[in-house]
Design a protein around this nucleic acid. Structure first.
Length: 301
DNA sequence: CTCGATCCCTGGACGC
DNA sequence: TGCGTCCAGGGATCGA
């Protein structure tokens, strides 16, 4: 499940692999997750991929103006533009030799001028792809919160305090922070010893700062480890990440806490499975814990 | 403002 | 073996 570290890993891989390549043609499969598939067909061919950026969980392929086409007021279509890509849950984006057979669920193929195709595959189609002009892109991006790797102590504290939402919900809210998903929310809360159901407003200044610090440390380490691969994530070279080996809470229901040996529990918080240590991360008043499910021996991972 | 519910979608795990 | 059911989850949306 691609979150900030996984998307950063893919973006870095693509930067090495496809920067400067030109898009010659496009082939589409299912398009129900693409904003305007016709726009892709009309505007991508002929453009060069000039940069690959990450913005939260989005990847941005910055595209050149169309060569040989005059840019006029009536023809903004030839101006620089971007391809916005969200990997959703199961999206993969990778350059593949064009002669290789296309994998199942391949929905976008961009033929490049080096004999490869930049292929987007996504079984569940929870991702999103959009061709956006500079102006529209700027509009879209301003809906998002701060980059968790760059936010200051004050920026984070201001976004948490005064909010009566649960801290887990705040961490997942892309208009608060951009890029954090379920795994890194749980991992950072475990490390900061904060229960996911605590309200943002109830965290002390010190707790908020601890949470910011450990979140940054975890994200940075996860990037170094090339992300977490639970079931689907592969980088732009088709390789899984390694950070799942360092998970301390996520997916560990029924296993022992690495700090205190208590049994890690799972509960739905903010509509998502949330893993935490009931002892290290004391619950707020009124938080009820369901009985531990019986069966599982292998559990997850 | 915040919540929960619902939908999107498929593969994998599990129960029988 | 095979079938049905449930679950995973980011995000949009809607009603409470």
């Amino acid at each position: 499940m691609p979150e900030l570290p996984e998307v950063e890993t893919v973006a870095r891989g693509l930067r090495q692999a496809i920067l400067g390549r030109r898009i010659l043609s496009i082939t589409l499969g299912k398009t129900d997750f693409i904003d305007d598939p016709v726009a892709l067909e009309q505007h991508l061919p002929g453009r060069q991929i000039e940069a690959v950026e990450r913005y939260g969980k989005f990847m941005l392929l910055r595209l050149s103006a169309v060569i040989g086409m005059a840019r006029t007021p009536a023809n903004g279509d030839a101006a620089p533009a971007s391809l916005l890509v969200h990997l959703g849950m199961t999206g993969h984006l990778a350059p593949i030799p064009a002669e290789y057979p296309r994998e199942k669920h391949t929905h976008v193929c961009l033929l490049l001028n080096d004999g490869r195709e930049l292929r987007y595959t996504d079984a569940r189609r929870f991702g999103r792809i959009a061709y956006l002009t500079e102006a529209i892109l700027a509009e879209e991006l301003k809906e998002f919160g701060v980059d968790p790797l760059e936010m200051s102590k004050e920026e984070f504290a201001n976004r948490i305090h005064g909010r009566r939402a649960r801290i887990k919900a705040l961490l997942l809210d892309q208009s608060v922070l951009r890029g954090v998903g379920n795994i890194y929310a749980d991992e950072s809360l475990w490390r900061a010893k904060i229960h996911p159901a605590r309200l943002g407003t109830d965290l002390s200044r010190k707790q908020a700062e601890t949470l910011r610090r450990v979140l940054q440390e975890i994200l940075q380490k996860a990037i170094v480890m090339r992300g977490s691969s639970i079931s689907d994530f592969l980088d732009a070279a088709g390789e899984p990440g390694e950070y799942q080996r360092h998970h301390r809470a996520y997916g560990r229901e029924g296993k022992n806490c690495y700090r205190c040996k208590s049994v890690i529990r799972r509960a739905i918080v903010a509509g998502r499975s949330s893993y935490f240590c009931p002892k290290c991360q004391p619950p707020p008043r009124g938080f009820a814990l369901l009985p531990l499910p019986r069966r599982g021996k292998a559990g997850k991972r």
